[in-house]
């Protein structure tokens, strides 16, 4: 799993890749949280473009970052959700939080 991070003013984009499960979520969580603490972005974008698989551990990862961003008075946004992840994203109730943007919606990745 090679993840990439980019910054644009107060916005931090973290691009996840590969398969997100209980095993891989741990590393991603630690990396993202240390970046949040260092950079204190007002918006965190989690980019799912390169994620090929995700189970409920991915939901836990998103919910945890959502809570963390709110703690710092910031916002979380989940962007570029591929078709194969839509079912699990919406089953989780994340749809109702209004943090999900589907692939190609109003957002382009800043490399």
């Amino acid at each position: 799993m090679i993840n990439r991070v980019s910054f644009n003013e107060n916005e931090m984009t973290y691009r996840l890749s590969g398969e997100i499960d209980h095993h891989s979520a741990k590393t991603a969580r630690e990396l993202i949280d240390s970046l949040i603490q260092q950079k204190k972005p007002s918006v965190l974008k989690l980019d799912f473009s390169d994620v090929s698989f995700m189970d409920s551990s991915g939901i836990g990862l998103i919910m945890g970052r959502y809570r963390m961003m709110h703690l710092y008075g910031g916002e979380l946004c989940v962007v570029n959700v591929p078709d194969q992840l839509e079912k699990i994203m919406f089953l989780s109730g994340l749809g109702a939080l209004g943090v999900i943007e589907k692939k190609g919606e109003a957002y382009e990745t800043v490399e």
């Binding site: 979520a25 409920s56 836990g60 990862l61 919910m63 945890g64 079912k87 699990i88 089953l91």
Partner: peptide, 15 residues
């Protein structure tokens, strides 16, 4: 506390 969502069985059921 380990960021489990409590959705594992719900996912199994809907999938």
């Amino acid at each position: 506390s380990e960021e489990r969502a409590g959705l594992g069985f719900a996912v199994m059921q809907s999938f």
